[in-house]
Design a protein around this nucleic acid. Structure first.
Lengths: 118, 118
DNA sequence: CCGATGTGCAACCATCGAGTTGCTGGCAAG
DNA sequence: CTTGCCAGCAACTCGATGGTTGCACATCGG
C-alpha cells in the first residue's frame, strides 16, 4: 500500500503540482467540456503549440487526472474524475484536522486565561 | 470583486500553487501541529534556512492559508482552515461537474450505438 | 504506392522559483 | 547603553519547467 501520510510525497503531490498550472486547468476544462479530444484538437483552442499540449497531457496523465487511448493514428484523451475527487477528499480531511487542532488550542488558551485571571 | 470563474486565475490559483510545494505542505503541517510558531522556530524543524521559511510563509500568507501577527519583536504564524476548506469545496464541485458531463456523454454514445445496431 | 495528417522524441532557450549568503534595522533583556 | 535575537530586504546561484522548433515514424485516404 502507498502509506500516504499527510504532508509527504505521493499521489497527492503529483495532482497538486498538475493543478498548479493554469494552462493545465484550462486543458482539463476543455476536456471535461468535450468529453474526448486529441492533443492537436486541444492545441487549436489554446495559444500554445501541439507539443506543449502533449507535455501537459503527459503531466496530467501521470497525475491520474486524464487518460489517453489510442484510436488508429490518434490518441483520445478524457478526464478522470476519481483522482480529483480523492484529492478533494484529502483536502477536506486536512482542513477538518486543522480546525480540530485550532479548536483544541483555543480551548487550552482559554483555560489558561481563566486560571491566570480568576 | 474578484470574479472568480471556474478555471481562470484567482484565489484558487494561489492556493494550488502554494500547496504544490512539498516544503510548504510540511510547513503547514508543523503549523497545524503547534498552533502558532515563528519563522525561526519552524526553520529549526526543517533542513532549510530561516529566510527560505520566511519566503514560504509569505506565499502561504498571500494564498490565505496562514496569517501572521506581530508580538513584540517576533511574528507568530497560524494556520487558516477556511481557505483550504473553500478550495476543497471548489475541487469537489469540479469533480462532480466532470462526472455529470461524463455521464451525459456516455448516455449519448449509448444512444448512438443503439441507433447504429438496432 | 504516395501524399497528408497526427504522434513521439530530442535539443534547445528563457523564465520562474527555491534556496543561499550578507547586511541593516528594531526590539528586549542585561 | 550595549549586547543579542529576530525579522526584513537585496543580490546571487542553479535546477526545474513551460515553451519552441525540427525531424522521424506510423497511419489513413486517394
Amino acid at each position: 500500500m502507498t502509506d500516504e501520510r499527510q504532508g509527504s510525497v505521493g499521489v497527492v503531490d503529483s495532482v497538486l503540482v498538475a493543478l498548479a498550472d493554469n494552462t493545465r486547468r484550462e486543458l482539463l476544462q476543455l476536456l471535461a467540456a468535450q468529453g474526448e479530444a486529441t492533443a492537436t484538437t486541444l492545441a487549436e483552442s489554446l495559444p500554445i503549440s501541439r507539443q506543449a499540449v502533449a507535455k501537459h497531457l503527459a503531466v496530467l496523465d501521470a497525475a491520474g487526472l486524464v487518460s489517453g487511448s489510442r484510436v488508429g493514428r490518434e490518441v483520445r484523451y478524457a478526464v478522470k474524475p476519481a483522482t480529483l475527487d480523492a484529492t478533494a477528499r484529502w483536502m477536506t480531511m486536512l482542513a477538518a484536522d486543522w480546525d480540530r487542532r485550532l479548536a483544541k488550542i483555543k480551548h487550552i488558551a482559554e483555560a489558561a486565561e481563566r486560571r491566570d485571571t480568576p
